[in-house]
Each structure stands twice: as C-alpha cells, then as structure tokens.
Design a protein around this nucleic acid. Structure first.
Lengths: 354, 354
DNA sequence: CTGTTAGCGCATTCAT
DNA sequence: ATGAATGCGCTAACAG
C-alpha cells in the first residue's frame, strides 16, 4: 500500500518509471491509445493506481487545448435562481448528459458586472470547453463574447435582443404555450381578461405575450362565444410582472384596479399565478368561479396550492438534455455548435384554477 | 479597433511584441509587479487591451500551481438541492466573499459515485484551489480525499462520522437550536411530544436530536410544569424523517399512530414541519390548539404557510461568508485551512404554529 | 509496439 | 528596469 505525499502528487514520469516504460507509453495507456502491448498497459495501470496518479490538468489543458469541463451559467441573483424550480429541472437534464460524456459539469452564477467579467476571463482562459446559458436577459453580453473567443455556447430560450440573435439555442414553444393558456380562458367563457407578463427583457415573456395576442386576435377574427354560445366582446389588459410571487400579487392588484370585473388572468409563470391567487383571495374573489387563473411552468407548487393551478407545462428536463447534447456533440464531433434550434412543445395542464 | 481572430487568442508574446518589450516585462505588467517603468506599463496595458488579451489559464496554472477557482460542492440530488432554500442562502454568503477575492466560484453537484470520482479527479488535477462542501452525508469520502491531495477543504456543518472528524468546518449550533425548539414546546405546556428527525446520517439531524434530548432531560431534572403551573409528566417519541415534506407527513402520521394524544411536534426542518401541518389538517387537528408545531431553518415558506411556522433560524448567509473567508484566508495567507470551527448561534422565531 | 523529441504559454529565476 | 533562459507536466509527431 502506497502512501500519499499530500503535497506533491505523482507525475506521469513517476508512473512511467514505476512501470518501467517511457512517458510516452504511459501516456498512451492513460489516454486509452490502442497501440500498446497488454503487458505494458497492465504495468502502467498498476503503477498509476498504486501512486494514485491523476494527470495534471494544467499540463493536459495546455497541450490538448481542452479542459473537459463545461459550464451551466445562470445570469440571475442567487435567490431567483433557487426559488424557481425551472433551473433545477433543466439542470437535471443537462447533468445526465454531461456526466455521461465524462466531463466536469460546472455551475456558475453571474449576478453582476464583476461576475460577468470574471466568467468571461475564466472561459477565455480555456477553462471551459463550452457554456450553456440560462435565463439570459436582454443586453446580456457574455454568450456572444464567449463565442467570439471560440467557446461554443448554447442558450436556453430564444436570445433576447442584444444578446446575439443567431446564437445556438433550444427553446420551448412559448408562443404556442401563451396561446393555449389564453385560449383556455376564452374557451371557458372568460371575457374580461388580464395578462401578467414576465420581465419585458426576457424572450419567454415576450413570446408568451405574443401567444396571448395571437389567441385574442384569432378570437376576434372568428367572433368569441361565451359559455352559452352567445358571442361576446372580449376586453384584455396587460400588467407587467417579474416572475416573482410578489410581482404577480402586485400586477394582479393593478389589473383589478383597472378592470374590477376581471374574470380571467393568465400569469406568465406559476410563481406569479400563486401571487394572483393570494391577491384574489384577499379581495374575496373566488377562483375559478369569479376569476379563472392560468399559470405557466407547472412547478411542484402548482399542485400544492388551493385551487390547484391550471398551467402550461414545458418539457424542461428534455430542454436540458437537448442543450447538453448539442454541446457534447459539438465537442466530440468537432462540429461547431452551430445554429441548432430545437423547439420543444408546450402543453396545457387543466386543473382547478381555470 | 482590433479584430478578434475567434480561433486563436492572443498570447503574451503577441502582447510583448505589440508593446515593444520582452515577454518578461509584459508578464510583469500583467501580474502587477512593481518593478516596471511607467512607459512600459502603459504600452503593455494598451497592447493587451487592443488584443483583448486574456492569459491562457492552463499555462498559468502550470507554473503558478493555482487555478484561482474555488468550488462550492453539494452532495445531493438536484431536486433536493434546489428545493431547499438552505443552499441558496449559504451560497449567497459564499459568493460575496469569493467574488471579492477575484476568484471564480464554481459550483458542482455530486449526485452519485460517478460524479464523486469525476470531481475528485478534477480537483486533484489542480483545477480547484479549494472546495467548500455542503450537506455532507455520513460516509461521504470526497472532502477527505481532496484534503489528502492537498486541496484545502471546509465543510458546512460538523463532519458526520466517516467523513473526517478533524476536517475544518463551520457550523451553526444545532444542539442549542434543537433545545430551544423543544423547550418552547414544553414552555407552552405541551406534554406529549413528538420529534421528527432528519436523515440519521447527517450531523444536523443528530445534533438537533441531541438538543431535543437535552431539553427533555433538563425538564425532567427540574420537573416540568404545565400552563397552569401544575407539574406534569412528559412523554416523548421520535420518528425518522428525511428533510422532505413528504417525509414529514409520513413521520407525523407515525407519531400520531403511536401517540394519538400528541400535543407538540418538533420537526427538524421546515419542509417536514409543513408536511406535519398538512397531515394534522387532514386529521382534523388544529394547530396550535390541538398540536403545536415547531420547525427549523426559517425558510420563506415558513411565513407563507397557515399557520405561520414557529421555527429556529440559523445565520446561513453568515455561515457562507465564514466558510468562504476561511478558504480565501488560507489561500491568500498560505495558511493551511486548518481547524477552524466557528459555531454560529441559532435562535427561536415564534410565530403562530407553536 | 515503443522511446525520443519537441513544444503548449506562462512566471520566474538570473544576468545585465 | 529589462531581456534571455528555464521549466511546469503532458501529448503528439516522429523515428525506430
């Protein structure tokens, strides 16, 4: 049994020496090259194990130009980031694929300008073979800057303006999701509708809003009918939210102030829908009898809340898998992670709130 | 305005050449060495900026034996990890300190054996200057293995058995927290008490259990008195939970089955307390009138739930800051991150559930 | 199949 | 204050 030094770890030379071969042969064995004799391989492996040999990452990076590490970058404050299960689910999908490719998955949060510079420097320094970006807001420069430096990048979600329109990305169909949610409200007879948007600089917000508009336009085109088959005019209002429960609460209050006979709310995510539920309860309004509420994301909380939320589900784990697959494929195949544009379907999950 | 190549980034040679100095001088400027003339410094800086120079991380690591990156490692499944706000808060504290030290904070999840091996290899390869471990379960080998390889390590929480008793760590006073929670139940007159523990292999569970025992023993010693000042016998039962809402639900059911006249529950974390609340409501028991409930952690959900949870608050952000400070200090000072053992106070937050 | 050789890009001696 | 030379540990191209 060998003893670890604790300070200086074994080098390839040491392994080669112990195995009685040259560095080159030792290296071949350890990198899995086929052109090695059985006996040499065996001796090297044994020596490496006995010395607890681990290759020096710096030396390896320097010559291979790879780090075998990829990052999952979230451009948000820690709070947001953790309070939204969105990230956890996508990360899970990513994790599976990256782990299977035997790379180190690293996880970084960019909560401000200093973080951004640090990350770009880190990546430009060669520490990251690729980066996946989540929740990029408008004006986020990191993805484009990394790509300029030759680091493959994939975004979750359509790049917002100013981020790099042609950046590879994978998205769920937020336009269709927004349309489904809105149409559901119309279908159940709601005619005084309110939308609570997400942050206006995020693509998902914009797209869900576009879907809302599309549903309303479609309806206007062919004439809405209420539950009794009677056509009725539709009134629609929009209030700005921010994807937080508090924001949903506030925005719904605004909606109600501007339209007291509100009968349907589409909140652009579940957290805000929960905020809406809370406010409506405070105002003595019943859900869905007085006001129907539809959320988005189908987070675990959606079923825990009273009434259970009708919402739109996105295949988030699949989104993560897809992103990671694009990255890994690009890395393994040498194919530049060019314009992939998977668009994953969203679907309505009807529960009690609408 | 210079144009980026996009494939090959500028090297120090290129910068030196453009500045009309030697590599050595350029290096001195960029590493902030004092022994450089004003004019040389100026030219080098200008050249570096115009070339968008970023030092090659591999080359730098190779010679400095540092990566300027530290990791925050969570040994949990993604779900757990994100669903528990514990991590977010600690991370926030860590982030502040690490960012201020101009190092890259990396974040890794170890969800299984493959991940563990990958991480150890990554760290042993020199990619990590230090690692902070969260939520280490009994038998977790990574921290000790990293330390053996010369990577400074700090744990959040007392090391559970088999993890390395003498590993540096910073903890909150879980024993006292458990005692406070239990004592509060006794003080309000509860005499038929139930404890829902966390996973038995986690130090925090063990310590909160120890605090529970201590409160009960103290009480036994001096004789408990009920709300009317009448001494009464105390009965106490323990059920095993797992820090999840579902686990709290199940464990509380078990408690109730074994002791139908249960009148006080101490759940070792808020998630389980919420599970307890749900079960008690299902059984038609009022909280706190029939059964008082105390949680632990004071997560945001604690105030959102009905009734608002009486719970124990830990200074988690401070815990994060403390861990990161230990790491950064060790790294900057060259002092081995040896036995630090900050013990941060816990305090009771009384709300409606007990 | 194996050993020898040559850098990868940088920080750091040692001279000057 | 500056330049020339050295080596970190490894992989890969080249001989043999």
């Amino acid at each position: 049994m060998s003893v670890e030094d604790g300070r200086t770890s074994a080098t390839l030379d040491a392994v080669a020496l112990a195995a009685g071969v040259s560095r080159a042969t030792a290296s071949r064995v350890l990198t899995g090259s086929p052109r090695v004799s059985e006996s040499a391989r065996d001796r090297v492996l044994r020596a490496a194990a006995s010395l607890s040999y681990v290759p020096n990452g710096a030396a390896r990076m320097l010559v291979t130009r790879r780090s075998d590490a990829v990052a999952f970058v979230v451009c948000e404050q820690e709070e947001r980031f953790f309070s939204d299960p969105f990230f956890a689910t996508v990360l899970k999908g990513v994790h599976r694929v990256v782990a299977a490719s035997r790379r180190q998955l690293l996880f970084a949060v960019v909560a401000g300008e200093a973080d951004r510079e640090q990350l770009v420097r880190y990546a430009a320094g060669g520490h990251l073979d690729a980066a996946m970006f989540l929740s990029a807001h408008g004006g986020e420069t990191a993805p484009a800057r990394l790509r300029e430096r030759g680091v493959p990048v994939v975004l979750a979600g359509r790049p917002p303006s100013g981020v790099g329109e042609d950046l590879p990305h994978v998205d769920t169909d937020n336009v269709d999701g927004g349309r489904l949610a809105t149409q559901h409200l119309l279908d159940r007879g709601c005619r005084r509708l309110g939308l609570v948007t997400g942050p206006p600089d995020m693509a998902s917000s914009q797209d869900r809003l576009a879907g809302w508009r599309r549903a309303l336009d479609d309806g206007a085109g062919r004439g809405q009918e209420d539950a009794r088959g009677t056509p009725a005019e539709v009134t629609a209002l929009v209030a700005e939210g921010d994807y937080t429960t508090a924001g949903g609460h506030r925005a719904t209050a605004e909606l109600l102030a501007r339209m007291p006979d509100l009968d349907g709310v589409f909140a652009s995510n579940d957290l805000m829908a929960v905020g809406a539920l809370t406010l409506l309860r405070e105002r003595g309004l019943r859900v869905p009898e007085d006001v129907a509420v539809v959320g988005y994301d189908d987070i675990p909380l959606a079923t825990a809340v009273q009434p259970a939320l009708t919402t739109v589900r996105q295949p988030l784990e699949e989104l993560g898998r897809e992103m990671a697959t694009m990255v890994v494929t690009a890395l393994d195949g040498g194919v530049p992670a060019s314009r992939g544009r998977a668009l994953l379907p969203a679907r309505l999950v009807v529960r009690d709130s609408a």
